[in-house]
Design a protein around this nucleic acid. Structure first.
Ligand SMILES: O=c1ccn([C@H]2C[C@H](O)[C@@H](COP(=O)(O)OP(=O)(O)OP(=O)(O)O)O2)c(=O)[nH]1
Ligand SMILES: [Mg+2]
Length: 605
DNA sequence: GACCAGGTCGC
DNA sequence: GCGACC
DNA sequence: GGTC
């Protein structure tokens, strides 16, 4: 289930996207759209059968969104009359029906349309056989008969497949709303949520938030399997050169690309220019990016993140489509979105997926170390709602158990001073074991951050040419640090050819010390430059510079910069390539034609 | 319509 | 091979 | 989501 597929989700030049809201469907006037804000998941989840296709189109016409992937935004499961409640649950691999989802027979939408009102789904003729009234216990009341509105409204879609699943069709998305109160300050209590969302977002990054009504079409996520993909990360846009010869892409890589457009060429400081004129826009885009977590549209999320990074660097307010479209990584749709955000001061209707309790549960679960979107969603679907639930009812890996035990600790940022202190402790121990070993703190600390999510150490030694030469040292170090009470848990240990160790540590002697995540990377002297680039990040910067290398037919990883890399279909690497440089950070930048920038200027996220 | 970084480790 | 993480 |  999860995704791995790709498809693209792009939009044809003229614009529309794939989320089709059924391109051929003409919606009835808004006042008659009784399913506005409702998201229907049909079982079976396709429109291959003619009758079902007609019914689905009709529902869409009356305002419904159709999803082929069960998600947090799904409001109704519409079931074929030949199926029973049990069939559906088995098909969806669910034990209990999420409390916000109403299961109805396929007659429900039709009859509602005929009566021009949302009917009461609890009426016997619409219940699915075997669907007992568990509903009354659980949920308050589904939409009442005559009202078309109801609490749920819409929401962004969080989608996840039961076991397969696919597209969401029209979508529910987040949109803006100037009228609504906003999202603007959301952050307070969300501080925490915010981080979670980023995790969500990062992991899956995909999902469509859409504009509300732009009715046109854009909304649906990629249909099909899962996410779409397209470039989100680091990418360049070529300035002007129009007609360049179309390179033949086949076996040969496309040699023409705009290096200046790569994020790594300009870097970033992470500082939102004081009172950045685009702060509000950034805020909204961040929200949108966060919500995309729901689905698995990893690339879309990436695109939003890049745009945020670009806006952060601007000293002037980007208000119009034309100003926005000139900026790297901002294309047609994001430019439109930016203009609209500025004009309306917000999203018209950022759905509140956030108000869906399951969304919070999802976030809670995803914040467990070693729990990602897939696992979290499965648990949510199974009806689990708390960490206690998980402890009692699901099987957890060792790391996940630790993640739950130290849930809050792992989410607590580490002040820079403490990182420095932890670093000194490790350095002292390392040097006492092998004076020739050098200890470098990388990660956000090396970029100058005032607080870090974890501590990243590079353990290196000049004379070495392979990380294995340092394995013995690592063992001594971790043993020692464990003995003295500094290391308190191991999460991942290097396998024979390995070069990394992950675990938890505390500053010994402190009464209530907080468990901190700590990572060691073994680096031979010959690879130090590449390792520094890697471990210094940030991740966006790394992806950018690595993509740039690949455009040149090279490859950059934590060990070095390689040339003559052959790639097959799907960019699959066919050989190792030959080393250009690994030891010197500066030389790698130079070889790539990237102006040197210190760690503090590699903050692109 | 292809592609969006490249890798390690656990299960 | 997939999921999660760096 | 964007780029080519
Ligand atoms: O997907 C990723 C994640 C991380 N890194 C690199 C860059 C990053 O700087 C370093 C350390 O990872 P970590 O997750 O610790 O990030 P950080 O930059 O140190 O931030 P934080 O303060 O959250 O630890 O590993 C990548 O190349 N790709
Ligand atoms: Mg870190």
């Amino acid at each position: 289930m999860l995704g791995k597929r790709n498809h693209s989700g792009s939009v044809p030049p003229n614009g529309k996207k794939k989320l089709r809201k059924r391109s051929t469907v003409e919606l009835v006037p808004e006042s008659e759209q009784i399913f506005q804000g409702k998201v229907f998941y049909y079982v079976p989840p396709d429109d291959k059968a003619q009758p079902r296709r007609i019914r689905i189109n009709k529902a869409i016409k009356f305002g419904a969104a159709w999803t082929t992937e069960l998600s947090l935004s799904t409001t109704h499961i519409v079931v074929d009359k030949t199926l029973t409640f049990k069939d559906v649950m088995t098909f969806l691999k669910l034990e209990t029906l999420p409390s916000n989802i109403i299961m109805v027979s396929e007659d429900y939408p039709i009859d509602s349309i005929e009566s021009r009102f949302l009917l009461d789904p609890k009426q016997k003729q619409y219940t699915v056989s075997g669907y007992q009234e568990m509903s009354k216990v659980e949920r308050a009341a589904p939409p009442s008969p005559t009202m078309s509105e109801h609490a749920s409204e819409d929401t962004a879609a969080l989608k996840q497949p039961p076991s397969h699943s696919k597209e969401l069709v029209h979508g529910s998305e987040i949109d803006d709303t100037s009228a609504r109160v906003q999202i603007s300050q959301p952050q307070n209590h969300d501080m925490d949520d915010h981080k979670k969302m980023i995790k969500l977002a990062r992991s899956m990054e995909h999902i469509p938030i859409n504009d509300e009504d732009d009715d046109q079409e854009d909304d649906i996520p990629p249909s099909r399997d899962q996410s779409d993909e397209s470039g989100s990360d680091v990418e360049p846009r070529r300035p002007s050169s129009h007609n360049r010869p179309k390179s033949k892409r086949k076996g040969s890589r496309n040699l023409s690309f705009n290096q200046e457009g790569f994020t790594c060429m300009t870097g970033g400081t992470g500082i939102t220019t004081d009172s950045n004129p685009n702060a509000r826009t950034i805020e909204i885009l961040q929200k949108m990016a966060d919500y995309y977590v729901e689905t698995k549209d990893h690339w879309r999320q990436s695109a939003y993140r890049k745009t945020i990074g670009v806006l952060r660097k601007q000293n002037t307010k980007i208000s119009s489509y034309d100003e926005a479209i000139r900026l790297p990584t901002i294309g047609h749709r994001l430019a439109l979105k930016i203009e609209e955000i500025v004009l309306t001061n917000g999203l018209r209707r950022l759905n509140d997926v956030v108000s869906d309790p399951r969304f919070h549960v999802l976030q809670t679960f995803m914040n467990i170390y070693c729990v990602g979107i897939n696992q979290a969603w499965n648990w949510v679907q199974q009806g689990h709602t708390s960490l206690e639930d998980l402890k009692a009812h699901v099987s957890l890996t060792k790391n996940q158990q630790l993640g739950i035990e130290h849930y809050d600790e792992f989410l607590t940022r580490i002040p820079r001073e403490e990182v420095t202190a932890l670093g000194n402790f490790v350095r002292d121990a390392a040097v006492s074991i092998d004076p020739k070993v050098e200890v470098i703190i990388g990660g956000s600390y090396r970029r100058g951050a005032s607080s870090s999510g974890d501590i990243d150490f590079i353990l290196t030694k000049r004379s070495t040419t392979s990380s294995q030469e340092l394995l013995e040292f690592l063992t001594s170090l971790t043993n020692h640090l464990t003995k003295v009470g500094f290391l308190v848990a191991a999460l991942l240990t290097p396998s024979q050819t390995g070069s990394k160790w992950h675990g938890c540590c505390v500053l010994p002697g402190i009464l209530k010390s907080i468990w901190r995540r700590i990572d060691f990377l073994l680096v031979p002297g010959s690879e130090l430059g590449a390792a520094l680039i890697y471990f210094t990040g940030d991740d966006i910067f790394n992806r950018s510079i690595r993509l740039l290398a690949s455009k040149k037919g090279w490859r950059l990883n934590q060990r070095g910069l390689y040339k003559d890399v052959l790639r097959g279909p799907g960019r699959v690497r066919l050989n190792e390539g030959s080393l250009i440089e690994g030891a010197d950070e500066n030389k790698i930048f130079a070889a790539l034609g990237v102006p040197w920038r210190p760690p503090e200027q590699r903050i692109c996220n």
